[in-house]
């Protein structure tokens, strides 16, 4: 579904952002794309969606080369950027204008999601807050039934109840054929909905795997004292949050994504 091989990308007069970057994501997964500031998360999303061309390497999304921007590819990919622009019309007018360009668009699904977000087709887009407009875009993207949904910091600008609504709606709205790629700094906002993570650091995907495998391989505990076999530890209230190797017969623990991200980006993972 999404296949990136040996990607190289650099902005003018800057250090290369990606060098020999490879990543492969199957159909039907929700992937959390994590990385420090400036790691290239947004740039990667722009490359995947066809807004930027790779300078070297190969990239294929649903069998298409994104930068060729073929209509069939564009109709099957939906990107919600952190900053976006919408025309000064009502949701109804915008939807009726744009939905014919998305062959798999489901109007009933849109109405259902809009209702859950407490929005209606009568709302005028320019009179909505940034968060409400973002909720509309999320609703439209989900209703478009695109095979690839790309969300860049989707929870930025959403209030606390909306974040929880977003998680619920996302999980209930996508099908097994759809892949969702979510880039975020807010690890806690997405930790319960993603089933895979990809961590970007120094121009490479330093970790890309399912949470299931992650849980099989590591244990996350709160310990009073630092265990001798700890792979990584951080001081916390009530002790130390530690990552330990998971023995074959050990019980799986709840994943602490924030701790794991710090572990991965502070130490070369092998």
């Amino acid at each position: 579904m999404l296949e990136i091989q040996n990607l190289y990308f650099s902005y003018k007069r800057k250090q290369p952002l990606f060098e020999d970057f490879s990543l492969s994501l199957p159909d039907g997964c929700i992937v959390g794309l994590l990385g420090k500031n400036g790691a290239g998360k947004t740039t990667l999303l722009n490359i995947v969606s066809g807004l930027l061309p790779p300078q070297a390497g190969k990239i294929a999304v649903n069998g298409f080369t994104p930068f060729e921007r073929k209509p069939a590819f564009l109709a099957d990919v939906s990107l919600i950027a952190e900053e976006f622009s919408l025309p000064q019309v009502s949701i109804a007018a915008y939807t009726s204008a744009l939905q014919p360009l998305y062959p798999k668009f489901d109007g009933a699904k849109l109405d259902k999601i809009l209702a859950e977000f407490e929005l209606s087709r009568a709302n005028r887009l320019h009179k909505l807050s940034h968060g409400q407009r973002k909720k509309f875009l999320i609703a439209f993207a989900l209703a478009s039934n695109c095979r690839l949904l790309i969300l860049d910091e989707p929870t930025n600008g959403l209030d606390i109840p909306s974040k929880s609504q977003f998680r619920k709606i996302l999980v209930s709205s996508i099908t097994d054929e759809q892949t969702v790629l979510i880039s975020t700094h807010q690890v806690r906002d997405i930790e319960n909905i993603i089933d895979s993570i990809a961590v970007l650091d120094n121009g490479r995907a330093v970790f890309a795997d399912t949470l299931e495998n992650l849980s099989r391989r590591f244990r996350f505990e709160l310990a009073d004292t630092l265990p001798t076999n700890a792979l990584y530890a951080e001081k916390s209230i009530g002790g130390q949050r530690v990552i330990l190797p998971n023995d074959a017969d050990s019980e799986e623990t709840e994943i602490d994504l924030e701790l794991f991200f710090n572990f991965i980006t502070n130490k070369t993972y092998e």
Partner: peptide, 17 residues
């Protein structure tokens, strides 16, 4: 602007259209 360009480029239609 970058914000509006993004939406325009990603509209599901060919460049020629």
């Amino acid at each position: 602007s970058k914000k509006s360009a993004m939406g325009y480029i990603l509209l599901p239609a060919s460049t020629f259209e």
